[in-house]
């Protein structure tokens, strides 16, 4: 009897725990709607959530919303793959080779300190205003977090494990695949997560450079005509896209770093029991 009760309690608290992160957003949106209904805020400056959603549905029916979203997603993904990929390769090469590290690292560190958005005028003059300019800007933004994390991840793999691998006659490839890469993976995935964040912020800016499509364009276009509903809609879409890419990244971490999750679960368990 008692057992069942505690069990139920446990399930209840689990549900509560799962819904806890949503509490504040839901509350904020509800508050916002109420504030609009009671005319606490000027509708022309901040439209109500329901207005924003109906506007979204309207744009969706016209096909505008999903087209602009897919174009933005394309630019973001292409930029991430190019920049992130390049950052990974550079980080990897510099992580394993002393010579290239000496050759490149300080230069890269120097370039890293230039805010990539400051390069917009140069990129426009070099690459114009087409897709390549936007994608390059996103790529540039994603390159450095990936580089730093890959480089740092690879150079900080436990040297004792590497020595073990070498003394057990692992080939260069196996040493990388079985020891160095998995050891660096947690840091690399952190880089991926960080790059995803940079990707969206860069894209917003990139799409304000004479775009004729994309969420950033929708937003700047709406801004010209003080179309608040669309502006707020775009902001919400960015929040949603940012959140879902972070969700994916986090789950990738969980999947690829299962071994760490087990470790954590163990220590958590012992901590919890120590509490009581």
């Amino acid at each position: 009897m008692e057992n069942i009760e505690t069990n139920e309690n446990y399930h209840f608290s689990l549900k509560l725990k799962n819904s806890l992160p949503w509490l504040i957003p839901v509350f904020l949106i509800a508050f916002w709607q109420v504030a609009c209904n009671l005319s606490w805020v000027n509708e022309t400056l901040l439209p109500s959530p329901i207005d924003v959603v109906t506007n979204g549905i309207k744009l969706f029916k016209k096909g505008e919303l999903q087209e602009n979203m897919s174009i933005s997603l394309y630019r973001a993904t292409a930029g991430l793959l190019i920049g992130g990929g390049l950052g990974f390769v550079l980080g990897f090469i510099n992580g394993v080779s002393h010579t290239t590290r000496l050759l490149f690292d300080s230069t890269i560190q120097m370039l890293r300190n230039i805010p990539h958005l400051a390069l917009i005028p140069l990129i426009i003059l070099w690459l114009g205003i087409g897709e390549s300019a936007k994608i390059s800007l996103v790529a540039l933004g994603c390159l450095f977090p990936m580089y730093i994390n890959t480089y740092h991840g690879i150079t900080s793999v436990d040297p004792k494990l590497i020595e073990m691998g070498k003394s057990y006659e692992l080939s260069k490839k196996d040493l990388f695949v079985k020891v160095i890469f998995p050891g660096a993976l947690p840091t690399i995935l952190m880089g991926v997560r960080y790059a995803l964040g940079v990707m969206w912020t860069t894209l917003i800016v990139a799409e304000t450079i004479s775009a004729s499509s994309g969420i950033g364009y929708m937003s700047t276009n709406a801004e010209q005509f003080m179309d608040m509903k669309t502006i707020v809609l775009c902001i919400l879409i960015y929040a949603l896209l940012g959140k879902s890419s972070d969700f994916i990244a986090k789950n990738l971490e969980d999947i690829f770093l299962e071994w760490r999750a087990i470790e954590r679960r163990d220590t958590n368990g012992s901590e919890a029991s120590g509490d009581k």
Binding site: L161, M164, Y168, E169, D174, K178, P182, G183, W259, E263
Partner: peptide, 25 residues
């Protein structure tokens, strides 16, 4: 190449299960 070392620390690869750690390559 004729020798194998067992170190003071186990130096097992934490991301592999026991069998894979024994197998290595």
């Amino acid at each position: 190449k004729e020798a194998r070392v067992m170190f003071q620390e186990d130096r097992l690869l934490p991301w592999m299960n026991v069998t894979d750690n024994v197998l290595l390559d």
